[in-house]
Design a protein around this nucleic acid. Sequence first.
DNA 1: ACCTGAACACCGTTCAAGT
DNA 2: ACCTGAACACCGTTCAAGT
Lengths: 258, 258
Amino acid sequence: MAAATNERAEQRPHSVWLTGRPPLRRKAEQPAGLGLDKIVEATVRLLDAEGLAKFSMRRLAAELGVTAMSLYWYVDTKDDLLELAVDAVAGELALPDDADDDTADWRDQLRGLATTYRDVLLRHPWAPRLLGEVLNIGPHSMAFSSATLRVMARSGLGPDGTSGALASLFHFVYGFATIRSLHEARCRAAGLSIDDYFAHVIAAISDRPDFTETMELSARAGYAMPDASALDMLDRDFAFALDLQIAGIDALRAGRAD
Amino acid sequence: MAAATNERAEQRPHSVWLTGRPPLRRKAEQPAGLGLDKIVEATVRLLDAEGLAKFSMRRLAAELGVTAMSLYWYVDTKDDLLELAVDAVAGELALPDDADDDTADWRDQLRGLATTYRDVLLRHPWAPRLLGEVLNIGPHSMAFSSATLRVMARSGLGPDGTSGALASLFHFVYGFATIRSLHEARCRAAGLSIDDYFAHVIAAISDRPDFTETMELSARAGYAMPDASALDMLDRDFAFALDLQIAGIDALRAGRAD
DNA sequence: ACCTGAACACCGTTCAAGT
DNA sequence: ACCTGAACACCGTTCAAGT
């Protein structure tokens, strides 16, 4: 019987954007003191500076010169605040102003959208992780989705191809940014440069006898080139993957090209 | 001067696999009691059953009938344990036994590898999130990387194309599995079916007047078809994305195909 | 309307101590 | 070699109370 009382509490989907009152409040509503905007701004600043692991409601409150509990007047839960932070950085995405212009090249526009998405995620290394935890349907995120839809709609893929191609392209960028941010965070934590870190990892792997073959293959596949830096390698991979996906769209848009 | 003593502690990269003694210990070394294998196995079981958020060293210890501190004899830190759990599930990946066979079709093999990767990640919804947090260079993970390398090497892409194409394909699968696991976790938490949950989200978005246009576009792009279930839609997108990427490789492997 | 203090039920990890 | 108890320095969040 105790379980029955909890039943309804679990029923509501947990997201700021799905509550009755999403925080789309009018301007000039918060004259002084804290205010939601100020809280979200400080959240993004703290996340950028110290990372997701060190972020806490208590830490944020201290930053704002206030007790932790004050924050709960503006926000129901820490997760809600993080959702707001995610949409705040989604506002940095550069959207094409001619997404519906049929004379513009959808290839260039897709490259631009993928690149701005990557750049914003790399600028805020905590963002990729949060994208895997919170619902991403705030106003800025939706504006970005809308732009990607409108551009891809002009690629010549059919209606069912469009959503698949968007998944292919933007899940790739998301995965790419996630893994790259992971590596950068680990480098910072270890106090190593990215190249030193990669060298360290590669040395550790090469020591294990069962992986010498794999390492040779990696080297032959263009990984860990002695002359190029790790970041150059990642940029090269990103550019090639973009080419690959555009080529894939081109191959499928007219119909089977066998 | 106090800072100087901490300097070296931060110097080592934090990963089980990068410590001098990775846990590749001989068998029959742990006769009774706990044993690392038993701990990792219980970790995976608990993560599957209750999710990453509810997992704690104290909870795991209780499951094993032991105090939390006992675990620290086998493992340096919670993160190390999670790295071991990640590589344990990487052991479930189905590898082709003919990765080097030139008569085998690399297209089929790439599809197989991408699909087994997706399936394993979806079977363990906590795994995608951890892949964005821990270094993934355990023996099983390396064996998988090795297989992907060997197959892609036979695609006809040059050495620098190979790593880019692998990034394109497997970052996509990673992103896809992450976002899908996110949605399934939220459905469970809300006590809704996936279709009900999607309907709920779409209704909430459609209520916002500035997004009616976006929703129409989504509908026209094949999202949220009234007859198909959300899972069918996701499967369709995955299949199309796979086709797209294979077609992209085909277009680039011989050289520019303009 | 906005903010606080004390408290609850947790965390990961250290450290000295037991067997 | 293996396990424990007590303690430290944290968490997110609730709740009654202040202004």
